[in-house]
Amino acid sequence: QSNALQASAVGHAGPAAINEFLHNCQLIAVRMYTTAAALAGSKELCGILNEALRDDRPQHAVQFARALNQHLVTGRAHSAAAAPVRWPPTNCTWRGGALPPRFRHFFVPGKQFRTPMFLSTSSSRDKALEFLADRGGPDYVLWTIEFDPSRRCDHVNFIDRHDGTLDPNDPNYGAEDEFLFAPYSGFIVVRVTWQDAPTADRPHEIVLRAVVDNSVIREDAPLAPWA
């Protein structure tokens, strides 16, 4: 929190230096979510928050999640953000990581599901591949998320600032080209490609279509066991 508050004033002077944390709590939440600082036994805040949401223990996460959602849910008239900060030029984002074999059966073409956590993706395929190489072994997977090119998506937004831990010289840009989905966002599996022995160069590949509006996916849709 201290990093986020200090970062909000970088590059500003006078009243503008305190405007963000006095009037835009969702932007402070964005900065806090991005932190690379290790907490609670080497976990980052984003991991702690998502673990609480996945385990359905939101008591201590609900206020922070609500503030962050104000930035992410762009398709509603009452939203603090009238439109996405930026949109991926290819109408795609990517996510790299691991997929344990016991969860492969869930992801079949045509499957509609929700993700019970904030879902980080990047408009840079190279950035996603960096995460894949760093965190994916031995069950490497590359996710591709496709968007409707005209209607886009109402519950994802660009993370355009950070708390200074990603770049202490400038906290006011999107350091990881990140597009973050709100919890319980809906997706449809388009296609999957499994490898007998996935590697960083030849990972499993799963292509998803992000729904335009979460209301088109039934509320009791199955929850992804991994993402």
Results as ranks from 00 to 15, higher is better:
Asn3Glu: 14
Asn3Cys: 04
Ala4Thr: 09
Gln6Asn: 14
Ala7Asp: 02
Ser8Tyr: 03
Gly11Ala: 07
Gly11Val: 04
Gly14Glu: 06
Ala17Tyr: 05
Ala17Leu: 11
His23Lys: 13
Asn24Ala: 01
Gln26His: 15
Gln26Ile: 03
Gln26Val: 09
Ala29Ile: 08
Val30Ala: 12
Ala37His: 07
Ala37Ser: 14
Leu39Gln: 13
Gly41His: 10
Glu44Val: 14
Leu45Ile: 15
Leu45Trp: 15
Cys46Arg: 15
Gly47Cys: 01
Ile48His: 00
Ile48Thr: 07
Leu49Trp: 11
Leu49Gly: 01
Glu51Cys: 05
Glu51Trp: 08
Arg54Asp: 06
Asp55Tyr: 08
Arg57Asn: 15
Val62Asn: 11
Val62Met: 13
Phe64His: 07
Asn69Met: 12
Asn69Arg: 15
Gln70Glu: 14
Gly75Lys: 04
Gly75Tyr: 01
Gly75Thr: 07
Arg76Trp: 04
His78Thr: 12
His78Met: 06
Ser79Ala: 13
Ser79Gly: 12
Ala82Met: 05
Ala83Met: 09
Ala83Thr: 09
Ala83Cys: 05
Trp87His: 00
Trp87Ser: 03
Pro88Asn: 10
Pro88Val: 04
Pro89Leu: 12
Thr90Glu: 13
Cys92His: 08
Cys92Gly: 04
Cys92Trp: 02
Thr93Gln: 10
Trp94Ser: 06
Gly96Arg: 02
Leu99Ile: 06
Leu99Cys: 04
Pro100Ile: 01
Arg102Met: 02
Phe103Leu: 04
His105Met: 03
Phe106Ala: 04
Gly110Ala: 00
Gly110Trp: 03
Arg114Lys: 02
Thr115Lys: 09
Pro116Lys: 02
Pro116Ala: 01
Pro116Gly: 10
Met117Ile: 07
Met117Asn: 09
Met117Cys: 03
Ser123Lys: 07
Arg125Cys: 03
Asp126Ile: 03
Asp126Trp: 00
Leu129Met: 10
Glu130Asp: 06
Phe131Val: 05
Phe131Arg: 02
Leu132Trp: 05
Ala133Cys: 06
Ala133Arg: 10
Pro138Ala: 05
Thr144Lys: 13
Ile145Glu: 07
Glu146Thr: 12
Pro149Gly: 08
Ser150Phe: 12
Arg152Gly: 10
His155Phe: 07
Val156Gln: 08
Asn157Tyr: 04
Asp160Glu: 11
Asp163Tyr: 09
Thr165Gly: 00
Thr165Glu: 08
Asp167Thr: 13
Pro168Ala: 08
Asn169Gln: 14
Pro171Leu: 01
Pro171Arg: 11
Pro171Gln: 08
Asn172Phe: 06
Asn172Met: 02
Tyr173Leu: 08
Glu176Trp: 02
Phe179Cys: 06
Phe179Pro: 03
Phe179Ala: 03
Phe179Val: 03
Leu180Asn: 10
Gly186Arg: 07
Phe187Tyr: 15
Ile188Pro: 02
Ile188Asp: 01
Val189Asn: 06
Arg191Trp: 09
Arg191Ser: 15
Val192Trp: 00
Thr193His: 15
Trp194Lys: 11
Asp196Ser: 14
Asp196Gly: 13
Asp196Thr: 12
Asp196Leu: 12
Arg202Thr: 10
His204Gln: 09
Glu205Ala: 01
Ile206Val: 14
Ile206Asn: 01
Leu208Glu: 03
Val211Ala: 04
Asp213Ile: 04
Ser215His: 14
Ser215Met: 11
Ile217Asn: 00
Asp220Ser: 13
Pro222Ile: 05
Pro222Glu: 02
Trp226Ser: 11
Trp226Leu: 04
